[in-house]
Design a protein around this nucleic acid. Sequence first.
RNA 1: GCUCCAUUCGUCUAACGGUUAGGACAGCAGAUUCUCAUUCUGCAAAUACUGGUUCGAUUCCUGUAUGGAGUACCA
Length: 509
Amino acid sequence: MERRVRVRFAPSPTGPLHMGGVRTALYNYLFARRAGGDFILRIEDTDSNRFVEGAERYILDSLRWCGITIDEGVDEGGPHAPYRQSERKEIYLKYAMQLVESGNAYYAFDTPEELNALRAQMEAEGKTFAYDHSVREKLATSLALSPEEVQERIARGDVWVIRFKMPVGEVVEMDDLIRGHISVNTSTLDDKVLYKSADSLPTYHLANIVDDHLMEISHVIRGEEWLPSLPLHYLLYRAFGWSDTQPEFAHLPLLLKPTGQGKLSKRDGDKMGFPVFPLFWTSPTGETARGYREDGYFPEAFVNMLALLGWNPGTEQEIFSMDELIAAFSLDRVGKSGARFNPDKTKWFNAQYMHTRTGEQLAEAYQKVMAEHGIECSIEKSAQIAEFIKTRATFPADFWDLSSFLFIAPTEYDEKAVKKYWKEGSHALISTLREKLAAIDDFSNKNTEEICHSWIVENNIHMGHIMNAFRVAIVGQSKGFGMYEMCEVIGKEETLSRLDKALATLPQI
RNA sequence: GCUCCAUUCGUCUAACGGUUAGGACAGCAGAUUCUCAUUCUGCAAAUACUGGUUCGAUUCCUGUAUGGAGUACCA
């Protein structure tokens, strides 16, 4: 009997959610939806020191912007609520104690200062300190101390932690859905802290295993940085007696810097001019980070790009809607090696979505950009213009440069453009064209084009000659989109007025 | 240092023993066009290196190199 697919995205609210984190959430989401299972959001806030105000809200907002919907989580609730680990703190001690009683874990009373000293000392000797089988019976642990002394220390309020007692010389055999079989000798592993009395909170390892078990998680899909602790997690499931319901694991490759070495970081974005976070972020201390949303990326483009960074459909399709991603996604087409992030391709994706959007869909964004420059434009006009310029735009912010001249008649004419396009005969041609246009009532681009073009062709006029002069007269520069489209937008009256002004101002040659 | 993981054009990737090693971004060139774009066509560009296994290796196994991650009372 196949068990129900239940996956979770379990971020820590220590700052804004990195795009790598969004990708992890996305893959979990796609996997869950593909299987008709559940997507759970669990907040892992067991580190009271690193908690950042607003980070949780940011995570939720980011996922919503991406179109990733949550079945069970802090806002949605669900059968395993609460979904914030800080609100589940009382359940973890019991499990930690269970491991102590079964001999799989022990108390350790070392203070952070003592451990630091030990580390420094070992380092001075050119060695690395590891809290493992070689030291656990020599330090202040329940393995070395008498039961009475342990009780006494606890009773008098000494701070303690519970550490996992890593077996010695055992080979753990593991399976990863992406990487295949992995085996590790436990002698190379240390005794990780599972629970801290100082704040009555578990560490990631304990909370993670306990919650995944309690929440009946079937698949753990997470970043590659967790691969080294996979043996510990296997051993924890075994120590609890949960091996038969242990989830399957899949470790995703990391996102790397566009150039140079290492994983993608906020600094790369600042340096190379691209966002690393989905949304604009302001930290409680006032630091800010740019976001894809505010930089003008469509969520669909961002998601599409992220989906293809480390996964491929096995076909040559590159543009995917969320539904298409869900239908096509599978973990066995996720790559194994780290993927360098490519800002250029991300822009290309955005341009693709820009082009396929209709003028109506773009109208609001257009109106907003114009408003930011102090230009008011009706929603109908916005839709009309957006439709004409969208193939030239990558971001909504490009709209301004692509069409501002429609609202602002030229007061002067670009010297280079005039020199290049207002040539011998231009004045007479434009003069005649003005009369042609003046006689037209239906100013739709289709109609004006039909009438003007047939006149141009019949009279053997060179297309480039007249159209470019026309452009200089209307726009004042050699930019813009289709001449007849631009005339349609500004209307007959404005067209004629601009032509009159040009004819009066430009050389009468 | 130690442990684990990875390695195909500059980048993202396809090819799960037999292909002229395919596609996309970026680059370059050309076509189309009323500017600029879009679009279309073409060019250039890769199996890290070693040994094996095999009739045959990008593909399987050694080793090396390189890269990545982990090595916290952080996740």
